[in-house]
Amino acid sequence: TEIRININGVTIHVRDASEELKKLIEHLLRLGADEKEIREVLHRWEK
């Protein structure tokens, strides 16, 4: 699944996002995570 996240005008594009990762990101956004925090989570997730 491919997702695009727009945070304050900055688009983060994620290829091959699992449903689990998608739910995690949606949850973090609801909690008010910023772009830097989302990128950090994505970076750690890929490892």
Rank of each mutant, 00 (worst) to 15 (best):
G32I: 01
E20R: 04
T1A: 10
L29K: 04
K36Q: 12
S18P: 15
L21I: 07
K22N: 09
E35V: 12
V41F: 12
A33L: 10
L42Y: 00
T11M: 07
I38V: 08
E40Q: 05
V10W: 00
K23S: 12
T1I: 15
E46F: 08
N6Q: 10
D16H: 15
E2R: 05
G32S: 04
L24H: 09
H27N: 14
I5M: 05
L24Y: 12
K36V: 13
V41G: 02
E2F: 00
R4P: 08
H13T: 12
A17R: 03
A33E: 02
R4S: 15
K47W: 02
G9D: 12
K22L: 15
E46V: 09
E46M: 12
V41Q: 12
K36A: 10
D16Q: 12
S18A: 09
N6S: 13
E2T: 10
N8V: 05
R44A: 15
K47A: 14
I7Q: 05
L29F: 03
E2A: 08
R39A: 05
K22S: 13
K23W: 10
E46C: 05
E19N: 11
T11V: 14
T1C: 05
R30K: 14
E40D: 13
D16E: 14
L21C: 02
D34L: 06
R15I: 13
I3M: 09
I38E: 00
K36S: 10
R44I: 14
R44C: 12
R39C: 05
V10Q: 10
D16R: 07
A17W: 09
L29M: 11
L29P: 00
N6W: 00
S18K: 07
K23A: 14
V14S: 03
G32F: 02
I3A: 04
E35P: 07
E2P: 10
E20W: 05
K23Y: 11
R44F: 12
L42A: 01
I7R: 05
I25P: 00
I7S: 05
E40F: 01
I5K: 01
K47Y: 02
R4L: 15
N8I: 04
I3T: 05
N6D: 13
R30W: 13
G9R: 03
E40K: 06
L28P: 00
V10I: 11
A17M: 08
E35S: 08
K36T: 12
E26Y: 06
E37Y: 08
R15C: 03
R39N: 14
A33G: 06
T11Y: 02
K47H: 15
R44E: 15
G9T: 05
E35N: 04
H43D: 12
H27K: 10
R4T: 13
T1S: 11
V14D: 02
S18T: 11
V10A: 10
I3V: 11
D16Y: 12
N6G: 07
L24I: 14
